[in-house]
């Protein structure tokens, strides 16, 4: 039996004390050890983006990182976006613009867009399209995903959500 590492994973502001093998990906640790199953796994090799989460504010593929690497860093997942019953502007925009169909890819798109827009609120539609090209949607709802993110971007510029989301 391989050695286990006792680590503290900070996800959405909450500490999770977990014991994992070094080979446990961040995605699997979030889902199976922390119970945060909103992060989805599609391809497990960096191509689909379903597993995108924020690590210290940056959108990354959680299937290409080991949980032990995220020790001491702030991880944010889709579960941390809404404030209680109040949806994040991006979640609201996806709802209003039919930005999701089966919803499998949605958490990845939401975290990608959150990270990109928090870093650069003034991204143009062309820049957002380029960034969103990183993730795949098998229901091919791309037009409405772009529409949703652009709508949320204007709302976030007008009224920036507080940083603690």
């Amino acid at each position: 039996m391989a050695e286990k590492h006792a680590i503290t994973l900070n996800a959405n502001g909450k500490d999770y004390r977990i014991s994992v093998e070094a080979r446990r990906t961040l995605a699997d640790a979030l889902r199976d050890d922390c119970g945060l199953t909103g992060t989805h796994l599609g391809c497990e090799h960096g191509v689909c983006g379903a597993c995108t989460v924020l690590v210290d504010g940056k959108p990354v593929r959680s299937c290409l990182m080991f949980a032990v690497q995220a020790e001491g860093q702030a991880v944010r997942t889709v579960e941390g976006l809404a404030k209680g019953e109040v949806l994040h502007p991006l979640q609201k925009a996806f709802w209003e613009n039919h930005g999701l169909q089966c919803g499998f890819c949605t958490p990845g798109f939401l975290m990608l867009a959150t990270g990109a827009l928090e870093a650069e609120p003034d991204l143009s539609e062309a820049e957002l399209r380029d960034i969103l090209s990183s993730n795949l949607c098998r229901c091919t709802g791309y037009q409405n995903i772009i529409k949703s993110v652009c709508a949320a971007a204007s709302e976030m510029r007008a009224c920036p959500p507080s940083a603690d989301r």
Binding site: K58, P59, R61, A116, D130, S133, S134
Partner: peptide, 12 residues
């Protein structure tokens, strides 16, 4: 750099 993979992959 814009041609290398995608935005999230370029973060790591």
């Amino acid at each position: 750099v814009r041609h290398i993979a995608h935005y999230p992959i370029r973060q790591r």
